[in-house]
Design a protein around this nucleic acid. Structure first.
Lengths: 208, 208
DNA sequence: ACCTGAACACCGTTCAAGT
DNA sequence: ACCTGAACACCGTTCAAGT
């Protein structure tokens, strides 16, 4: 059901909640978060603004659904590393790519995450490799670092990069920005190094 | 009407930009970010909304000035650790404290930081202990982790306040969630451990 | 089940004009 | 230099009523 018809949902027909989320993501990519209003979205769907509130309880709930859609592909797949450190780094890069795949993606996800309306996919995925307090700490560190730095990154380049083509480029995103990413990869490596050092001294608190 | 703060800007007198920032911080603490509007702030200052735009170019610029005020005490002081790892942890805790010192502090700072309208005080302070690419990476990791986790923390806190408002138990809030901070200190320790491990292998990339 | 029409209670910002 | 008055172009959300 993720493979949706990218074409207009037929002017005169009824919409599903999924259609509304689709449209919201598409409006987001075209006009950005500051211009994504319920009224603009309704116009795009050929519907009155009030109609949206049949499908969704509030704008924030809608943005949470959009966030969930953005984050869905961030998971561990067969063949991925199975140790905590390298799994965390893999997920960090995957999260980064996904946030960059949509205009203002990091900002949308940041607030949904803070409001607790969506869960960190890094958290969920790392739990399957190791269900421990340490894994939760690592998941938090990776999630908040990646979301924070991507938010900052995305504001800086909001004007020029997002001129026209938007929603089709999820695959090229990682190669595009890998030129600028020395600091990003380094920070994930830093966290991975922390995990290794920590695991060598299990039980002893590293904070003095 | 409104009980005025320590320094009453005197009903009939002119205001300075500093007065406006003071008032904004005070309104923020009283009503929270969602209800901090230019109109609400103007009312508090006994002035028309349009008057604010003589002191400030936009609401975002004002929030950046508020952020700078919140972050001002986050710095290294005499007697603080002078090695990168322990200085970073010290600054992380100090940043955490400052964000928690004002209602919705993390959210205000998060967006000012992302918009590039204010600089991370961790970045500035760590530069004085070691001006290197590694120090910049560490500053970013600490800043984004602390801001992200505190944002999340602060939302949960206000949700809890709403939840327990009916039972009128107000004093327990701060003691309840200060017990929950093991993960926070642990994550800073993780980053510190990463720094130590990294420094033992300078030049060798830790990311594989 | 899904949507319209109309309203309510707001926003940030601009700008000529006042003092 | 600092502020008023009035407007402009918007918001999110609710709700009775229609189909």
């Amino acid at each position: 059901m993720t493979a949706r018809d990218p074409n207009p949902p037929s002017r005169g027909l009824r919409r599903t909640k999924d259609d509304v989320v689709d449209a919201a993501l598409s409006v987001l990519d075209r006009v950005g978060l500051p211009d994504l209003s319920m009224r603009r979205l309704a116009e795009d769907l050929g519907v009155q603004p009030s109609a949206l509130y049949w499908h969704v309880a509030s704008k924030q709930e809608l943005l949470a659904a959009v966030s969930a859609r953005i984050l869905a592909p961030v998971a561990l797949r067969p063949g991925d590393p199975t140790d905590l450190g390298r799994a965390a780094v893999t997920l960090g890069h995957r999260l980064h790519d996904r946030l960059l795949a949509h205009r203002d993606g990091a900002e949308v996800v940041s607030s949904s995450l803070a409001l607790g309306l969506v869960d960190s996919p890094v958290h969920d995925a790392l739990r399957t490799v190791e269900d421990s307090p340490a894994a939760r700490v690592v998941a938090d560190a990776v999630t908040h670092y990646v979301v924070g730095v991507t938010f900052h990154e995305q504001q800086r380049r909001s004007a020029d990069v997002w001129g026209t083509a938007a929603s089709e480029v999820s695959l090229t995103a990682s190669s595009v920005d890998s030129t600028d990413d020395g600091g990003f990869a380094a920070a994930l490596a830093l966290i991975a190094a922390g995990i290794a050092a920590w695991q060598e001294s299990v039980g002893r608190p590293l904070d003095a």
